[in-house]
Every structure is written in structure tokens, then in C-alpha cells.
Design a protein around this nucleic acid. Sequence first.
DNA 1: CGCCATCGCATTGCGCACAATTTAATCGGA
DNA 2: TCCGATTAAATTGTGCGCAATGCGATGGCG
Lengths: 176, 176
Amino acid sequence: MADSTPSPALQLGNQLCFAVYAATHAFTRVYKPLLEPLGLTYPQYLVLLLLWERDDRSVKELGEPLFLDSGTLTPLLKRMEASGYVTRRRDPTDERTVRVSLAAKGRALREKAPAIPEALFCASGLSVEQLASLRRAITEVSGRLRESAKEGPASPVRQKPSRGRAPAPARMRRPR
Amino acid sequence: MADSTPSPALQLGNQLCFAVYAATHAFTRVYKPLLEPLGLTYPQYLVLLLLWERDDRSVKELGEPLFLDSGTLTPLLKRMEASGYVTRRRDPTDERTVRVSLAAKGRALREKAPAIPEALFCASGLSVEQLASLRRAITEVSGRLRESAKEGPASPVRQKPSRGRAPAPARMRRPR
DNA sequence: CGCCATCGCATTGCGCACAATTTAATCGGA
DNA sequence: TCCGATTAAATTGTGCGCAATGCGATGGCG
């Protein structure tokens, strides 16, 4: 057997996720040599982009646009704090939330940062219009997926609750 | 200070890498609940897609379209071998290369796999034409970046050679 | 035949990504 | 006032992603 054309729409779904996955790595490889001398990784740079746009955000507010949770961001932000790009402190009005702000080094970097997206623009060899429409299309898809994720799977599927994780024996929280 | 519009093209570069990064995670979250009951992760599924298209590839051939190297693929493929999806064996004509082939379980999965991209298609809520043009655009950009990566950075940048790694005390290779 | 450059994979160490769990703070109602 | 539910981070364990290192296999050279 082995059907020859399983349906254009289904082929497309796989090709698309494949292409996006590969594109992320392609972008990472363009940015990495530029970020390395700054002591930044690619996700750390994306966090800086968010803070340049609007400073002083909670961890949750940083994770939402990137589809990341606190488990990923906490150690990442601690490293950024250690390298002097941001500061972390508890919100006085709600001790549960940690607010992340730009430190001097993070603000200063903003001035020389334009060289970084410029490299991507040159390497892509595409016009501003092409890149703009591509960005719009990708953002559109992400938005749709985000919405339908909230309302549960749109297809006849279901989610298994467990998969064997691990205990969490100890805690230590903020010494105060 | 703090310029208001640093240039549309540069803004665009950042917005685009940001959008692609977020889209990858959005796709992952749609596929994960579908792949979990099969014992597959998202990158493992992408490897299966490649093998369904053409079986019996070397590790290098698998890594190229995904922008992944052997350091990432070797443990991933070992897990896929352990769960019965693929087989790994040395090429008899060149003992250096490892060839990866579909095992029975991997071939069998192909039949029920269409349910997976279908979920993405439904969740996206976009037309086949929109998805197709999006796929074309992303593939185009990835291809350009791949090319310009070969010829070195297109911008006035340079790559630092070292970054402090670690020793590699032991080896063990194929017992034969 | 032996030397050496090159190629291809495995291994190691670090950082990102996520699910599950725990702790702490806040808010609502009895 | 006290109790339960909700919310926000942090922590832990597993798996992905990459740079650097090591070694066997191959091939060109004398």
C-alpha cells in the first residue's frame, strides 16, 4: 500500500511545522556568533527585546509572548542578573511576584543592538515587504494556535494527565 | 534620547526572529499531547517524517534539513531505537557512518499518523492556500540563511573561536 | 608500506524547555 | 477571624540543542 498523496492539507501541516522548526535553528545560528561576545544566548536576547519595548515586567508577563513558563525563565533570568543585564526583585505590593527590570548594562546594550537584526536582514536577502508579510503570517498562526489551545484540542484527541515526573523534596524560597 | 523608530528593517529582523521562536513553541504545544501517547517527542516525530519520505539515512543526512548535529541526534536516535521506532547500524562499506532505518513500529505508525497534522490544520484555522504560502516563505528564508552561513557572516562581524568547554576523559566506541 | 590530513560519529558539559510538585501570598466567604 | 481556593515562583527530573574534544576510518602522498 503506502498511499502516494495522503491529502494536501495534512502534508502541509507537517511541512509547516518542519519548516518553522528548521527556521528557528537557522535564526539561532545567525544570531549566536553576534550574541556570544556579549555573553548573551538567543533566548536571553529575546527577553531583552521584550524589556526594551516595556520595562519592569513580571516573570509571567515575560513568558507569555514567548510561550515559556517560569521553570524555563527563572534560571535564565538569574544568569542574566548575574551577568548584569537585568535586576530581579519582589513586588512590594504582592510578595508572590518577581519583577524584572533592565540594569545599566541592559539599557546600554540597546544603543549598539541594531547591528544584530541587521545581520539577519542582510543574510536573508529578502525585501522589507517580504519579511513584513512573513512576520504577519507567522504571528497570525501563533495567535490562532494560542487561542485554540485555551479551549482544548480542536480535534478528536485527548491529553493524558501523567507521564511520570518526579518528586520535589526540598524548598528554600527567598531568605528576606 | 532613546530613539523612537530605529529603522523599520531592523525592527523587522527582531520581530521576525521573535515570531518564529514563539511559533515553534506554539507548534510544539499542539503536537505534544498527540505524540505523548505514542512515546514520541516533537523532534523525534520530525525524524520520522524524514524517514517516511526516504528511509535508510546517515545521521548527517538526518541532521542537515533540521539544522541539527550529531551531538543532538545521537542520543535522540538511541531513544528512538530503544522504543522500537528505528534501527541503527554501521554502514558495512564505511564503518564510520551509522545508518538509521525505520523499524516495524516506525513503519506502522505511518498509517495512523495523518491525525497529527490534521490537528495543526484545524487549530490554525487558516486556509490551505495561506498555510502553503507561509510554508514557502519560511523555507525560502531558511534556505537563504543556510547559504549565507556557509560563506561566513554577511555583516561586519566575526566569530570567537573559543568559549571554554571541557575535557572528554573517556571513549568506548562500537564493541564489534 | 607508512605518514598525515580529512571526515564522521560518540562523548561531555552547559543552557534551554517543559511537566509535576511545593511553598508562599492573596482573596473570598463562613 | 479563620479556612479554603486561587495565583505566582521556584524547584526537580527528563529531554533537546550546541560547542569542543577524541578516535577510528578513509584517502592522498612519498
